[in-house]
Write a protein that binds this DNA or RNA. Structure first.
Length: 414
DNA sequence: TCTGGGGTCCTAGGACCC
DNA sequence: TCTGGGGTCCTAGGACCC
């Protein structure tokens, strides 16, 4: 048996944790750049605010209904997440942290599951203040189903007996099944498949043909045959990327250069934090997909890095070269995306036969920059090519304090 | 003016090899 | 007249997730 635990309205719950005055009020949390709504408290959902509602469009509504608005604050959420996961870990030897607010636990061989998960739930809520829900089933996909149903019930649900599972699936909308996205849901509904039970009744050949092995695994999992194991050790990262909309569009090459430099610097920093070097970089420009009258282009380039690196100056040199190759005049761009692939641990870097750059020196410069930026604040020291006063710094107008990760901002009582 | 950002996995098709 | 077959690697694109 598998349990899926997730935090209810996680970001909103985190914001609420240290602000009792927001316990009963609707809360929304915005994406980077305060672009759109990515988390809502129960009260905000009741008001009918949809996920990814653009903030600028919904601002009047939010104000009218006195909805508390927060910018996303990943330092805080990451820290609270770690607390929740540490608490859960004590309840199973087998745990996969699936995302910042979700994890699977192995429960095979456990007795009295109902009571066990109820106790788990109460303990986590008591120790962290974050509300959670638990669903248990014979497979991951069924645990997901149970979890969704648990939210509507008393916070935990165990699906075990076949007739119990069948009943749950017969009322479970196909688009709510984990792994069925918008496209597949549309296609399935067209042929009369509206629930998880309907999907399970489809001939497996049809599923294989139309939805590949991914669909087949899903189908089997719904029949209680585990195809998705609990992964205790995360796979090594395949890639890292930094991408961000400008909050407007631009056709100015110099500005795109600054944005590319600045995003590459962030990417390099992320690599260094993870002690990884990359052997491949990619740069992509994107026009504004919402401007349907304008011509859309998404030019992209993949750039080899001959000696794996993670120092800022060298990576910037590569991405700026890439930008030069793909830049098309006459379009208004809305976003730059810089990614790193072919990641290898710093200590395993092989030097290229044709190595011509002074890696050591550049690495020392980068680590010095990291130190100074940690001390004086992000962006205190940066490359000239990042520009003087970048207009694409994150907009975070509604940021809450670093309650748990900065002594200066610790909450005061009394 | 404004519409997230960071990931994963799978497939098809092309290039290349012997 | 005939124009292999089996393999690998890479890339682009699609679909999905939180």
């Amino acid at each position: 048996m598998v349990g899926l635990i997730d935090c209810n309205n996680f970001y909103a719950s985190c914001e609420r944790l240290f602000k009792p005055q927001y316990r009963q009020v609707p809360i929304v949390v915005l994406s980077n750049n305060d672009g759109c709504v990515i988390a809502r408290s129960e009260e905000a959902k009741q008001l009918g605010i949809p996920m990814t509602a653009p903030y600028f469009q919904w601002k009047p509504f939010l104000e009218a209904h006195k909805v508390a608005v927060f910018s996303s604050h990943y330092e805080l959420y990451g820290d609270i997440s770690a607390r929740v996961m540490t608490n859960i870990a004590r309840f199973s030897p087998n745990m996969e942290v699936y995302s910042i607010d979700e994890c699977f636990i192995g429960l095979t061989g456990f007795d009295h599951l109902e009571g066990y998960v109820e106790n788990l739930r109460n303990t986590v809520i008591h120790n962290t203040g974050i509300p959670i829900s638990i669903g248990v089933g014979p497979t991951k996909v069924l645990a997901k189903v149970a979890n969704k149903l648990a939210k509507k019930a008393q916070g935990h649900l165990v699906l075990q007996r076949p007739e119990q599972i069948e009943k749950a699936l017969s009322g479970f909308p196909i688009e709510a099944v984990w792994g069925i996205g918008y496209k597949h849901a549309q296609r399935l509904k067209k042929i009369g498949v509206n629930t998880a039970k309907d999907f399970r009744q489809l001939p497996i050949n049809w599923v294989q043909k139309n939805m590949s092995v991914v669909g087949v695994r899903l189908w089997r999992e719904l029949w209680g045959q585990p195809c998705l194991p609990i992964k205790m050790i995360g796979d090594p990262k395949k890639g890292l990327s930094t991408s961000r909309g400008f909050g407007r569009t631009t056709d100015d090459y110099e500005e795109l250069k600054e944005a590319t430099s600045s995003y590459t610097a962030r990417l390099a920093q992320k690599l260094r934090r993870e002690k990884l070097c990359c052997t491949v970089l990619s740069v992509r420009l994107l026009t504004n997909r919402f401007a349907d009258k304008e011509k859309q282009v998404y030019p992209q380039i993949t750039i080899p890095v001959h000696t794996a690196a993670n120092n800022t100056p060298q990576l910037v040199k590569h991405t700026l070269w890439g930008l030069e190759q793909i830049f098309l005049k006459g379009y208004r761009y809305q976003k730059v995306e810089v990614s790193a692939f072919g990641l290898i641990p710093e200590e395993e870097v092989q030097f290229s036969l044709f190595n011509t750059y002074d890696g050591d020196r550049l690495n020392r410069i980068s680590s010095l920059m990291d130190k100074l930026n940690t001390h004086y604040g992000a962006g205190a020291l940066r490359l000239c090519s990042e520009g003087h006063n970048p207009k694409w710094n994150l907009r975070r107008d509604f940021l809450s304090p670093n309650y748990t990760t900065d002594w200066k901002e610790i909450i005061k009582v009394g």
